[in-house]
Simulated scan of single mutants.
Amino acid sequence: MRLSTVILPVHRWSEGRHIWRRAEDLGFHAAYTYDHLSWRSFRDRPWFGALPTLTAAASVTDRLRLGTLVTSPNFRHPVTLAKELISLDDVSGGRVTLGIGAGGNGFDATVLGQEPWTPKERADRFAEFVRLLDRLLTEDAVTESGTFYSADEARNIPGCVQRPRLSFAVAATGPRGMRLAARYGQAWVTTGDPKLYETGTAVQSVEALRGQVERLGKACAEGGRDVAELDKVLLTGFTPEKNTVLDSLERFVDFAGTHRELGFTEIVVHWPIQDSDFAADQAVFETIATEALGRLG
């Protein structure tokens, strides 16, 4: 099992550079950031762009994988996103993972002046978005006319450092998203069952996640793919345990062990931010980073 972190893009780089470097020093497998224009309780607080932040992070780290959790079509277009990702992959020396999902309602969904998409349109857009992005990152020139996204001789030379392209970590819980993960993903991402966040129990959450893993396996089997080829990534903080899993090393080890048994290969925890939903003791957090995997055996 791997242990990674999410560093929200809330810090001016004079401070943020030390946090990303510290994440590498602590031995995290990867450090991700949210790809939003603002987010929930941080709406009226500092919030910087994901891809510039990751590019800066690449310049102060050497081994740490870098990525988004997650990028969505809400304010992105595959053609411009592909160019930026290829550049980031080059700057980082091939250390980029693109976490990608359908997105949701909220500020990102309306900031460009559009009406919020229906769930069906969101799913339709996501499928087309992922398919075109896959082509853009693997082919030198792409022309495609889609319902929502098109490209006219889009050039992406020299392509990604990673071959055939950088990794996709597809966030999905429904059947269409699972099929996209099975077809295009090198990893699958979940935050658990959102219906359980407020009033569910840890036991209910484990069973819901077990069901998600089983549905991923079914989608892979139907697509002729071995589910073992995909990493299974759990972004914590959105299950009934919320961030209490960071209260102690022992509690985190128990949580991680339970979810490893479900088949998860990577656990992602939020870098502590005081006065927020992601508040945690920094010393305990760093102890978890350096000792938890050793305790799991």
Results as ranks from 00 to 15, higher is better:
Leu3Gln: 05
Arg17Asp: 07
Arg17Phe: 10
Trp20Asn: 00
Ala23Phe: 05
Phe28Pro: 08
Ala30Leu: 04
Asp35Trp: 01
Ser38Ala: 15
Arg40Glu: 15
Ser41Val: 06
Asp44Cys: 01
Asp44Trp: 01
Arg45Ile: 05
Pro46Met: 04
Phe48Tyr: 15
Gly49Gln: 13
Pro52Leu: 06
Leu54Pro: 09
Gly67Arg: 00
Leu69Asn: 03
Asn74Ile: 09
Pro78Asn: 06
Thr80Tyr: 07
Leu81Gln: 06
Ser87Gln: 12
Asp90Ile: 11
Ser92Leu: 01
Thr97Ser: 10
Leu98Ile: 06
Leu98His: 04
Leu98Arg: 01
Gly101Phe: 02
Gly101His: 03
Gly104Tyr: 11
Asn105Gly: 14
Gln114Glu: 13
Arg125Thr: 10
Val130Pro: 10
Val130Asn: 07
Thr138Gln: 08
Thr138Ser: 15
Asp140Gly: 08
Glu144Lys: 00
Ser145Leu: 10
Thr147Pro: 00
Tyr149Met: 02
Ile157Leu: 15
Gly159Leu: 14
Ser167Val: 14
Phe168Asn: 11
Val170Glu: 13
Gly177Phe: 07
Leu180Gln: 13
Ala182Ser: 15
Gly185Leu: 04
Gly200Cys: 00
Thr201Lys: 01
Glu207Lys: 14
Val227Asp: 14
Lys242Thr: 14
Lys242Ile: 05
Leu246Tyr: 02
Asp247Glu: 15
Phe252Asn: 00
Glu261Thr: 14
Leu262Cys: 08
Phe264Ala: 01
Phe264Tyr: 14
Glu266Asn: 15
Phe278Cys: 06
Phe278Thr: 09
Ala280Gln: 02
Val284Gly: 03
Glu291Ile: 05
Gly297Gln: 13
